[in-house]
């Protein structure tokens, strides 16, 4: 069993817990070409490592990858983390008919969008704290 593959039978306990309290939580970041996109990706990685849920491939949904779509459909709770108001993650999931339980937009949490891709660990930690408050 690896960190990437979470079995439904495993107990999930850690400091951050989504209020949906589902066994099977899918985390979809936008991971786009901006600071907030890259921060969304790193926040998703951190949430997955903390046991909040399983990080999944948003682009795989857009690419109609059957296994990824079925994995999303198998989730009880979907967390979509968009970087900016374009809300591409939300749109991608909705286009595939996958219901979103929690939608977070980093710019709405006070993180300014720019095109600097060299994000700092401190930026990720600040964003993670804000996202955790939304869960």
């Amino acid at each position: 069993m690896t960190e990437e593959m979470k079995c439904l039978c495993e107990d999930v306990t850690d400091e951050i817990k989504c209020s949906c309290e589902s066994d099977n939580v899918g985390i979809f970041p936008c991971a786009d070409a901006s600071n907030v996109g890259q921060i969304s990706n790193m926040v998703a990685v951190k949430l997955a490592k903390k046991g909040v849920g399983t990080m999944m491939c948003t682009v795989g949904i857009g690419g109609h990858s059957p296994g990824i779509i079925k994995s999303a459909e198998g989730c009880d709770c979907i967390i979509a983390i968009d970087g900016c108001p374009l809300k591409c993650t939300k749109a991608t999931l909705e286009h595939a008919g996958i219901p979103i339980s929690k939608h977070i937009v980093l710019t709405e949490l006070g993180i300014k969008k720019d095109h600097n891709l060299d994000i700092l660990p401190s930026q990720v930690e600040k964003a993670l704290a804000k996202v955790a408050d939304c869960l």
């Binding site: 990437e4 593959m5 979470k6 079995c7 439904l8 099977n24 899918g26 399983t54 999944m56 491939c57 795989g60 990858s65 059957p66 296994g67 990824i68 079925k70 994995s71 198998g74 989730c75």
Partner: peptide, 11 residues
């Protein structure tokens, strides 16, 4: 398992 794109099991 991941070669099928499956990220959660069972599948």
């Amino acid at each position: 398992i991941i070669s099928y794109g499956v990220m959660i099991t069972p599948a």
